[in-house]
Design a protein around this nucleic acid. Structure first.
Lengths: 229, 229, 229, 229
DNA sequence: TATGAATGAGGCTTCATTCAT
DNA sequence: AATGAATGAAGCCTCATTCAT
């Protein structure tokens, strides 16, 4: 009986070690991506950084791309998690909480968010990992139902502009996407107050699409003129 | 004299041919990037599409990256041009015209805008073309003075929220950046009404940061609560 | 005493289990070679198909090649066995029985015979298994004495052409070798009557080298000419 | 005019040099295959032997397999050529000339014939070169019409056994195939008189299937017994 | 001046074998 | 005794760039 227990334990132990090493690979890859740039990271360098042999990497991942996709999935999961919490808060009455949570989670580690954006660009059309990429998209879409009903309610309450609900959250997505890129753009990064800037953008994101703000672009001149008075 | 003239003409002729060929290379590269995807385009394929020899490409560009950077510069120039026009209009009284022009020019050919975004990602940290990339950034910043003064005036007139002027145009940049990516994201592109959506986002972009819309995120709960009441 | 008996039994039991597993490995390897093709079979896949761990395979065979060679030896043994029976029959009066038995045994499972041919091609010059390969050759030669005396007698009786005895059985070997390959050649396999064809070839094999059939190639023209008249 | 001529000449010259190098690659590959064995030849080693860079090989061949297939095609072409001559002679009255030509051409350089056999085994099921392999098969089948009519005539004249014509030439193919393998089989190659042996086999090949030689295997015993008397 | 053949560094991946548990 | 994770040598192929003609 003892031997049985110890055997089962041993197996569990092995699995844990195995998973730890997997995490080690991911961490190594992530660190290298962030420090060296995507194209300068090779499987060899990942293995070296993780302190294992090159072949070992392939015990955990079928291809190099699977490592990249794994990083993306892990990240997307954390975003989804935080968004879900935000949606819950929104439903509880804090109308802007979802958007706020979304922005804050994406801007919490902008360098990571940006990495994931760039990884996705590389992987689109990669035949291997096409399935996992679909998973990623599914994950993103999985929040749509909650978002839709939440937003519909806000529209009904007159908080948000009355347009198709997805206009609102896709605008948020777009702004967050761009905000992250902004953090690292060589064109702008000489500005040092990016934290305040990000708060401003978050504010914009939280309130954008609120009723009374959207106007048909064609009428803007008039509106502005009248607003001036 | 005649021979001199014809010689000068011949030289001018040659230069024209040379420049035409340069444009041909760029057009070929652009077409291939858009149709085949960035990584599947080789110098060979560009030369073939342009109808010239591979070696000739290197008479016009020192490295492959220089072709890419050239595409970016050409594009940025057109954006800058249209933005400048928008700024002029804004100064003439149509407060949102600059933002509107900016969004419309970037969303006019989103596939091209996106290509340029992706090219930039590849080229960041490329030691060759570092100079040209700096040119690109300079070009982007070139309108900042006009933007700053324009925005400052709008702030003074009470149209825009009173924050550092660059907050406003950087938000625009970010939203446009994200909007373009949105057009092609596999997660969302199953939506067919993207034109309407883009109009909505443009509207958001044009009015975002308008006075009375921005609130410190920390106060959102309160605001919402009051709004709820 | 009881314990001794049971201990001895246990050892015998273990040996039996061990041998059974060895057979399982060979069967698994054979099945995979036939279904997937030689190069697509890995030690891993063999172990998986045999339902054991990869490491265990190496308790039975020192190298992967030893599995292959073992398949060859097993097969050659069965051929040799059947040939010996044929030789016995021949000695008992049925002059063509040996050749017939040989062809029929090789053509009984042509896919297996072909596999063994191909395995041999891979293993020639493999430093490991050089010894076992020599065994294989020895096994093939093991019937030579009987074959020689049998054929010598047939020559003396005037049944077979008077050439060195091995000419006869090596011709048989060659024809059988080629016949097997013929079964699977992409150049010819669109023919559906291969069974009849194989019977024909067997017939040829059985009678080839019979007296009066062999003519010096140089005289063929004359022969034909006279035959024509 | 002179410049035109020299330009055209230069191009022709270049093409010649290019083709010469292609032949150099093939020769190098062939030499290495024969000396080192198929699996020990790498693209690197071929390039080294040909005295060129590794990348240059890929200017001439899309994949490594294309080199192999090219060797096969070149060889098959020479066989086809000689067979066609033999068929012509056969039609001219020398009934066995076709078979003789076929055997002699395949046995002229048995080591090369065998290499081609082995190459085919490696390449079957290679997705690249599937087309070229089909070419090879087509080439082989291309002689069938001539063979069929030739053999039909020999059957009508009573020279050959009255079975479907392809039985005859497929038997030849099989015997030749096996004879080549026989030359190098470790089981038999300790015999030194292989030249005489090959003549014997050629003789067998030339006359096999001649009328009066084929008998249903089942009746062989009786026949032999009667032949004994 | 235009060309395109030649180059070779460098990337990804496979798999037989080992060995600690 | 059985396992399977770890290893790393070795192979194929790509493509930006050079340079002789």
């Amino acid at each position: 009986m003892n031997s049985k227990t110890s055997s089962a334990e041993r197996i569990r132990e092995k699995k844990k070690v195995f998973l730890l090493r997997e995490q080690k690979i991911i961490d190594a890859a992530l660190a290298l991506f962030l420090s060296d740039g995507i194209d300068r990271v090779t499987v060899s360098s990942i293995a070296a950084k993780a302190g294992i042999g090159k072949g070992t990497v392939y015990k955990h991942f079928l291809t190099k791309n699977e490592i990249l996709v794994r990083i993306m999935l892990d990240y997307e999961e954390s975003i989804t998690q935080r968004l879900a919490e935000g949606i819950a808060k929104s439903e509880a009455g804090e109308s802007g909480a979802a958007a706020k949570a979304y922005f804050e989670s994406r801007l919490a580690r902008p360098e990571l968010d940006r990495l994931v954006q760039h990884l996705e660009i590389r992987l689109i059309d990669a035949p291997d990992v096409a399935d996992q990429l679909e998973q990623l998209h599914t994950m993103r879409r999985s929040n749509e139902d909650s978002l839709n009903s939440m937003i519909t309610r806000l529209i009904d309450r007159g908080v948000l502009e009355d347009v198709p609900p997805h206009y609102h959250y896709l605008s948020c997505w777009a702004l967050a996407q761009g905000a992250v890129e902004l953090c690292f753009s060589r064109s702008w990064n000489y500005r040092l107050d990016s934290e305040e800037l990000m708060k401003f953008i978050t504010g914009v994101g939280v309130t954008m699409g609120n009723r009374g703000q959207y106007r048909d672009p064609k009428t803007i001149a008039d509106h502005t003129a009248s607003g001036k008075k």
